[in-house]
Design a protein around this nucleic acid. Structure first.
Length: 730
RNA sequence: GCGCUCCUAGCUCAGUUGGUUAGAGCGUUCGCCUCACACGCGAAAGGUCACAAGUUCGAAUCUUGUGGAGCGCACCA
């Protein structure tokens, strides 16, 4: 009996030692498993790429959940003898990382990015990203993630940069990437464009004004944009405005004097809303922009990139829109143009990272066109995104997210991929006068590179194949792609999953993964989101130190169905710490009672032939066999929450409460045949239980198994998963 | 407005294709330091499965409707 079993189980003292031993063995690397004869060279492969955590700081419980689920699948498949690869990596997360560092510099030194300059800022971000990276790696290891560190990738490293440039050029050559003046979401605070998905809508109470516009009354919540409005739009079928004809001119008195306006009839107008008449500001509204495009109308900029009014505003020029609003209303009132006002609640668009209020602007940007047929394939990118999910070549778990996915794709507009920030992949386009070079930097002098960087999702969209060495036709790419499972939170279904499908279908003409497993949010005990401001975050490192990573993993997994948010509390995790200790005590009992001390050395029962097991013992073996079969089935069908619960229940309430209790008289008895048979049985049941529990609680099971006489591999991690088809009696 | 999800024990949630007395964890009550474990053991209380109608031999599970909660997308002139 090893000394360690005499004390309660101590995860803190065990886990880091075990991880180091695994890492030392090299067996996280599937090639090493083949080399050491553990995996047959022709074994089928199983692969997952780790959704790369952002290098913006530390991991949170959501990451811990992701790691637990992925590691369960990886360990299960590895134990089944698959050539199993789990690729680690981190994401530079462009805008998120830059804004964290910028905020810090603003706070510490009261400087902005222009004070520092591009080079210096990038240096600072690089340092910060490296520190975050190291912290993240240590957290990944603490959670027990059996990642192949020899293949670690970063979205901004050399190989990935090569992939980004290659695909940018290929998409440009295919006519899918274009540069154009289009209306985009402009974040005046972050001084950059952002994509539709980076917008967070916030409810705002404001005033809705009715203004006299010639013979009409128009409604608006944004009088500060109205200076240049010279088109008045109504629905062609609106009987109230029948007398007005499309294209008709009218003269009217407006904010800064008399103007001429044109009547426009457009079906996009909601007759029920307000008065059914509106004026349009194409430069600062998506909808208005569309109307203007349809009718070929003029577009004028009213607000600058800092959120100040331009000279068109006359006396209000130079004012911030917020302060200008009240004054404009005052002027309208004096001029008798204010008809009425009412209170109004609407959603305003804000930037996710900076919480700046989005001001739509027309800007020259780079876009990916999603509705254009790709030459040679006769399909649009949108269709390429829809098809594999429709045909179930890609299966989404839980299934109902397919509908959400379709809904989103159908509403998808061209993807703006250029950002006016400095951290990230610089757009691989060079200009010299009217000339342009895409993808390849010209060697001659006189060329300058585009100042902008790419949306961070452009590079993470390549993740399943860029991590495997694409565009080189590597062995890894051939062997491990498409990957088997992509596991992530449902909140990035659109951001990331859709874009990976887009990129992979375009670049490789195949799917990036076969199954998408979406986990829910980890909330606090009261059901609130965990956040810095609430101070209700649970740090995986603290939790692991206090209760053990095994306990945290179980608490995150048991009963947690995919796609559903869960509540997490220290009490819950504590319960599974107790479970680890329970298992420890079971092991102590079995190891003590299943061996005989002779001359100071321990002997194990040689094991009876199967015929010596009593009918009851056959029954107990069959019971565990059934459990193994059910668990295998559950995991194959992505029900890890059920498999985890079953093994927990078996170990505590069957193995400990029933089998050990009923074994005590036999072990203390004088019938040596019965005793030895029972000793063999207990060792076998414990051994199999450890195997079944290992994917869920890798540390404590490994630690115990190392002391088992049934040990038949260097590590439990690479021992064989019970094969219920053959039966445990074999 | 379009779409999705949820409503099961005091709390948090399971319940896979409809099938015997509806489960778990935590909590509560009672009794136990029984030589594996007090990070434990034994026992107990606790549910008209939101509501209504329907399909069925049979519904927590399928259909429709009502009510409540949450989420996503779009729009907001």
């Amino acid at each position: 009996m090893p000394e360690k079993f005499m004390k309660p189980y101590d995860p803190a003292a065990t886990e880091s030692r075990i991880y180091a031993a695994w890492e030392e063995s090299g067996l996280f690397n599937p090639d090493e498993c083949v080399k050491q004869g553990i995996t047959p060279p022709d074994a089928p492969s199983y692969s997952i790429v780790l959704p790369p955590p952002n290098v913006t700081g530390r991991l949170h419980m959501g990451h811990a959940l992701m790691l637990a689920v992925e590691d369960i699948f990886i360990r299960y498949k590895r134990m089944q003898g698959f050539r199993t690869l789990w690729v680690p990596g981190t994401d530079h997360a462009a805008i998120a990382t830059q804004s964290v560092v910028e905020k810090q510099i603003k706070k510490d030194e009261n400087k902005n990015r222009h004070d520092l300059g591009r080079e210096e800022l990038l240096k600072r971000i690089g340092t910060f990203a490296a520190e975050s990276h190291d912290m993240i790696v240590s957290q990944l290891k603490t959670m027990g993630a059996s990642l192949d560190w020899s293949r670690e990738a970063f979205t901004l490293d050399e190989t990935r940069t090569h992939a980004v440039r290659k695909i940018f050029k290929d998409m440009y050559d295919a006519g899918l990437i274009y540069r154009g003046h289009r209306i985009v979401n402009w974040d005046p605070k972050g001084q950059t464009t952002i994509s539709d998905d980076e917008i967070v809508y916030q409810e705002e109470k404001t005033t809705f004004y009715y203004l006299k516009y010639g013979p009409f009354t128009i409604g608006t919540a944004r009088p500060e944009t109205k200076f240049g409005d010279k088109y008045v739009v109504m629905h062609p079928a609106d009987a109230r405005y029948e007398e007005w004809k499309d294209g008709q001119k009218i003269e009217l008195e407006w904010i800064n004097g008399p103007i001429e306006a044109t009547i426009v009839k457009d079906e996009s107008i909601d007759m029920e809303f307000g008065t059914g008449v509106m004026t349009i500001t194409p430069w600062h509204s998506m909808v208005d922009f569309d109307v203007a495009e349809r009718h070929g109308l003029d577009k004028e900029q009213i607000i600058d990139e800092r959120g100040k009014l331009l000279s068109i505003a006359g006396e209000f020029a130079g004012m911030k829109i917020t302060e200008a609003r009240a004054r404009i209303i005052e002027k309208l009132r004096k001029k008798g143009l204010l008809v009425s006002e009412e209170s109004y609640t609407h959603n305003i668009a804000t930037a996710e990272r900076t919480s700046g209020i989005i001001e739509p602007q027309i800007k020259l940007q780079w876009f990916v066109e999603v509705n254009k047929k790709i030459s040679g394939r006769n399909k649009t990118l949108k269709e390429l995104m829809l098809e594999p999910v429709r045909s179930r070549a890609i299966k989404i778990v839980p299934e109902h997210f397919e509908k959400t996915y379709f809904h989103w794709i159908e509403n998808l507009r061209d993807w703006c991929i250029s950002r006016q920030i400095w951290y990230g992949h610089r757009i691989p386009v060079w200009y010299r006068g009217e000339e342009i070079s895409v993808g390849i930097e010209p060697k001659e002098a006189g060329w300058t590179q585009d100042e902008d960087t790419l949306d961070t999702w452009f590079s993470s969209g390549l993740w399943t194949f860029s991590t495997l060495g694409w565009p080189e036709q590597t062995d890894d790419l051939k062997r491990y792609h498409p990957t088997d499972l992509l596991e992530t939170g449902y909140d990035i279904l659109f951001f990331w999953i859709a874009r990976m499908i887009l990129m992979t279908e375009f670049a490789l003409n195949t799917i990036p993964f076969k199954t998408v497993y979406l986990h829910g949010l980890v909330r606090d005990a009261q059901g609130r989101k965990m956040s810095k401001s609430l101070g209700n975050n649970l740090d995986p490192l603290d939790i692991a130190a206090k209760f053990g990573a095994d306990a945290a993993r179980m608490a995150l997994v048991v009963g947690n169905t995919p796609g559903t948010d869960m509540r997490m509390s220290e009490d819950k995790i504590k319960g599974y710490k107790h479970f680890a200790n329970k298992l420890w005590n079971i092991a102590r009992f079995v190891l003590t009672n299943a061996s005989e001390e002779k001359n100071g050395s321990k002997t194990w029962p040689s094991g009876p032939e199967r015929d010596h097991f009593s009918p009851r013992e056959h029954e107990l073996l069959t019971e565990l066999d059934t459990l193994a079969k059910e668990m295998t089935d559950d995991i194959e069908n992505h029900r890890v929450y059920l498999a985890a619960e079953k093994i927990y229940h078996y170990v505590w309430h069957t193995l400990a409460d029933k089998i050990i209790e009923e074994s005590k008289p036999l072990l203390a008895g004088t019938d040596s045949v019965k005793k030895e048979s029972r000793q063999t049985l207990l060792l076998r049941l414990l051994d199999q239980s450890l195997r079944l529990l290992h994917p869920f609680m890798p540390f404590v099971t490994e630690e115990i198994w190392q002391s088992m006489p049934t040990k038949d591999a260097p590590f439990l991690m690479v021992a064989r998963w019970p094969k219920p088809a053959k039966g445990l009696l074999q």
